[in-house]
């Protein structure tokens, strides 16, 4: 090797290495959506966390890379399916989501950042999935998708994808306060024969390894998430169920009022981070 080729090789390496090194702190998707992966904790966290961190910051650089480019993010197939379903008429009324809501990237941009959210008419806190199935049943006369079903997760991923980069800002006060308090109580309850709460792992021990798992803060701004482990999209409630099952406890059901409350509370712990769904996890 001549000196010149050697130099070129070194330069090439350095160029390649630069974005990798930067990725430890900066998540920019498709070279344009700038994410906030570390934020000041919201006042309602009452000092429980010194800083709020996206699950992305805990993953290996290989897994991180997959989320930085939609051509590499395996969840984008589901996003495409969700977008197609948005525009397809279904059910007795012969209507599509688009017939009422117009273009997804306009009408749904702020949805993922603000849900779960109080629904005045229904008199309850609703997550996105409850709202989707309410539209399907009552506006379209179609069959509900069902909690965390494949088409449901595809639609949720699509709605999330158009909200990427928006700052999570879930309301914890007003009429949602009661549900939020219930979620908070669940978060700190030590479940099962192992007597572990969400906080035992995700507040007291984030950044520690539990066997081979690098514990994150258990934030949900990246949901639904594509997991390499099971090679599909995973819903928030299914993740909650898995974590509670791992404490040797009787879990709650996906879609249960308990999990809706927990979802509101956990989402609010991530206020200040940006919407990343569909994120990629190991």
């Amino acid at each position: 090797m001549t000196l010149t080729t050697f130099k070129t090789a070194v330069c090439g390496l350095a160029l390649l290495a630069a974005p990798l090194a930067a990725s430890a702190e900066d998540l920019v998707v498709n070279g344009e959506i700038e994410m906030i992966t570390e934020a000041e904790p919201a006042a309602h966290l009452d000092g429980a966390l010194p800083t709020v961190r996206s699950g992305w910051t805990f993953r290996s650089s290989e897994t991180q890379q997959l989320q930085m480019d939609d051509f590499e993010n395996p969840a984008m197939i589901d996003v495409d399916n969700g977008m197609a379903a948005w525009n397809a008429a279904e059910g007795a009324e012969g209507k599509s989501c688009a017939d009422c809501h117009g273009a997804m990237d306009e009408s749904m941009e702020m949805v993922r950042a603000t849900y779960p959210k109080w629904n005045e008419e229904a008199g309850e806190v609703r997550n996105i999935q409850m709202q989707i199935d309410d539209c399907r049943v009552n506006q379209m006369g179609a069959e509900p998708y069902g909690v965390d079903s494949r088409p449901m997760l595809a639609m949720e991923a699509a709605i999330s994808s158009v909200g990427r980069g928006q700052v999570v800002d879930v309301a914890v006060d007003g009429p949602a306060a009661e549900t939020w308090e219930m979620g908070k109580e669940l978060y700190y309850t030590r479940f099962g024969q192992l007597e572990l709460s969400c906080a035992s792992c995700h507040e007291l021990n984030y950044d520690n390894y539990i066997r081979a798992d690098h514990l994150s803060q258990g934030q949900i701004n990246g949901f639904p998430t594509y997991r390499l482990k099971n090679a599909r999209l995973n819903g928030t409630h299914s993740r909650f169920r898995g974590c509670i099952r791992d404490t040797r406890a009787e879990t709650f059901s996906v879609g249960s009022p308990e999990f809706v409350a927990l979802e509101l509370y956990v989402a609010s712990r991530g206020n200040g981070l940006t919407v990343e769904g569909p994120a990629v996890r190991n």
């Binding site: 030590r190 007597e195 099952r245 404490t247 040797r248 406890a249 009787e250 879990t251």
Partner: peptide
């Protein structure tokens, strides 16, 4: 003295 003890790791009630 456990809260919602399960049947091992099945997620079902003990």
């Amino acid at each position: 003295g456990f809260t919602r003890p399960g049947n091992a790791y099945t997620g079902k009630a003990a």
